[in-house]
C-alpha cells in the first residue's frame, strides 16, 4: 500500500495553502508524489493524494493523465527524454534515439534491466537552436551527437 511520506504530506499542505483555490495545488502535489515514488505515479499514489487533499481521485486523475510530465508507468533512475520535433529531427535526433536504444538494449518507453535508464521520445523542449537535445531528469543536454549522448549517460552515477 502506497503511503505519502511525511515530507510529501508537508509539501502537499504547503501547496494547498499557496494558491487562491486548493485545486491549483493538484499539479504541484502530483510533482511531490512523483518525486517520492521514483519518478512515476500509480493508482495507489493517486488515492493517497486524494485523501490528503480531500479532492476526489477522479478529479486528480483527469489532471494526472492530461500532462505528459507525469509518468503513468515506471521510469529509470535517469529518465531520458529525447526531443523529436522538427528542428531536432532534421538535425539528427532519430539517429540518437536509435543509437541509445541499441546501446542500452531497450526500446522507447522501456526501462533497462538494472532500472537505471528509460528513454522516451518527446515533443519540442524549446532547445531548437541547440538541437538535437535530451532532457535527463531535470537537466538539458544540448548539441548532441549519438556518441556524445551515450557518453553523457555512461558518465552518470
Amino acid at each position: 500500500m502506497f503511503e505519502l511520506s511525511s515530507e510529501s504530506v508537508e509539501e502537499v499542505k504547503k501547496q494547498m495553502a499557496r494558491f487562491e483555490t486548493i485545486e491549483s495545488a493538484i499539479i504541484p502535489s502530483l510533482y511531490a508524489v512523483q518525486k517520492q515514488n521514483q519518478g512515476w505515479i500509480n493508482d495507489e499514489a493517486i488515492e493517497a493524494l486524494s485523501k490528503v487533499m480531500q479532492i476526489p481521485s477522479s478529479r486528480i486523475n483527469e489532471v494526472f493523465k492530461f500532462y505528459t510530465m507525469f509518468n503513468q508507468k515506471k521510469v529509470g533512475k535517469y529518465h531520458v527524454q529525447l526531443c523529436g520535433t522538427l528542428s531536432c529531427h532534421i538535425n539528427g535526433a532519430p539517429d540518437i534515439s536509435d543509437f541509445l536504444c541499441q546501446n542500452l538494449d531497450i526500446g522507447l518507453d522501456e526501462v533497462t534491466a538494472d532500472g537505471k535508464f528509460s528513454i522516451s521520445r518527446v515533443e519540442c523542449l524549446g532547445s531548437c537552436g541547440t538541437g538535437p537535445m535530451m532532457q535527463v531528469n531535470e537537466t538539458y543536454y544540448e548539441s548532441l551527437t549519438p556518441e556524445l549522448a551515450l557518453s553523457i549517460l555512461k558518465g552518470l552515477p
Partner: peptide
C-alpha cells in the same frame, strides 16, 4: 506539467486553476 495547449491563454488559465 507538459502540454503545448497551455500556451493558449485560456488553456493556461484552466491549467493554473488546477484542471
Amino acid at each position: 506539467a507538459g502540454a503545448y495547449i497551455c500556451g493558449e491563454e485560456t488553456g493556461l488559465i484552466s491549467s493554473l486553476e488546477g484542471k
